[in-house]
């Protein structure tokens, strides 16, 4: 080994950054690393788009004709407008998958240990994961909106409510990322995380107003659907984008969809973010 090796230029200097600037630095480094690495395995990214696009085509052109949208029974193409908010919310909910698989993979390969042995901000690994996944969810959302425009979805309520809708979708993705983080850190194996992250999510999404008006469901199921967080998010998106003319349900979350959606996001973050952080701290103790 050359003698330059022993130059004291960088020898065990104490961390220069401290506090918030270090957290930001480390978060951005980890986010950079996730995005950089993710772009080298484009297949996983592509599947993130293919699945929702498939859903759009399936529901818009196969099931859609048989589904009556309340208050727009005889308007051609009404279902496609109705559908898109459901697709957006479902796509954001699936943020669970990249977060859980990504963190499980890091644990599996020992990278989390490496990171924990570095004098970096403790929160950097999870925060970096959240930032990079949020960025990729944003890209997916844009693609799905373009997709929606192609099949006939339109924004009717003006710019501010639209931006509010986009913000709400990202907030929901942010909330679901924490759920994914907790799952990924708990199972610690990327293959298990891939199925554990999504298997429960399909029924939860279907048991909502995302694809089918709850009015068509039996009373018990209908009540569940109306109080499902997914429904609140979907109804809020329809409100903000102007995709639903009348609200038939008198359930509170349906009448106050935007408020209910925000509350759900806060609750999910409030419960899952601390659990995920705690899990991360304990993860290596196994």
């Amino acid at each position: 080994m050359s003698t330059t090796d022993l130059t004291p230029s960088t020898t065990t200097q104490p961390p220069k950054n401290s506090g918030l600037s270090q957290v930001l630095n480390d978060t951005m480094i980890i986010a950079w690393r996730n995005i950089r690495g993710g772009l080298r395995v484009p297949d996983t990214q592509i599947y993130m788009f293919i699945q929702p696009i498939m859903f759009v085509l399936l529901f818009a052109y196969v099931f859609g004709g048989a589904i009556q949208v309340p208050g727009a029974e005889n308007i051609a193409g009404a279902y496609r407008e109705y559908l898109m908010a459901g697709i957006f919310v479902q796509t954001m909910a699936f943020a669970v998958a990249p977060a859980s698989v990504g963190l499980a993979d890091d644990m599996h390969k020992g990278l989390i240990d490496r990171f924990r042995s570095l004098p970096m901000a403790r929160s950097g690994v999870i925060a970096g994961r959240v930032v990079s996944d949020l960025a990729s969810q944003f890209v997916v959302l844009i693609i799905m909106m373009i997709c929606g425009l192609i099949v006939g979805w339109r924004v009717h309520n003006g710019v501010l409510p639209f931006l509010g809708g986009v913000g709400l979708m990202l907030l929901f993705a942010f909330a679901m990322l924490w759920v994914g983080a907790l799952i990924g850190l708990s199972v610690g194996n990327p293959q298990v995380a891939a199925s554990a992250g999504l298997i429960w999510l399909f029924p939860v999404v279907f048991l909502s107003n995302a694809f089918v008006p709850p009015e068509s469901m039996p009373t018990v199921v209908r009540n569940i659907a109306e109080w499902n967080p997914i429904s609140a998010l979907v109804a809020a998106a329809r409100d903000l984008f102007g995709n639903q003319s009348i609200i038939v349900s008198d359930a509170w979350p349906m009448q106050n969809a935007v408020l209910a959606a925000l509350l759900w996001c806060v609750v999910i973050i409030g419960v899952f973010a601390p659990l995920a952080v705690r899990k991360y701290k304990a993860a290596a103790s196994k």
Partner: peptide, 19 residues
């Protein structure tokens, strides 16, 4: 302070394989 003074190399090559 300990972390700033040590290097750890484990049983598994803990590098990011996509980087």
């Amino acid at each position: 302070a300990v972390r700033s003074s040590i290097g750890l190399s484990g049983q598994f090559a803990a590098v990011d394989e996509n980087l």
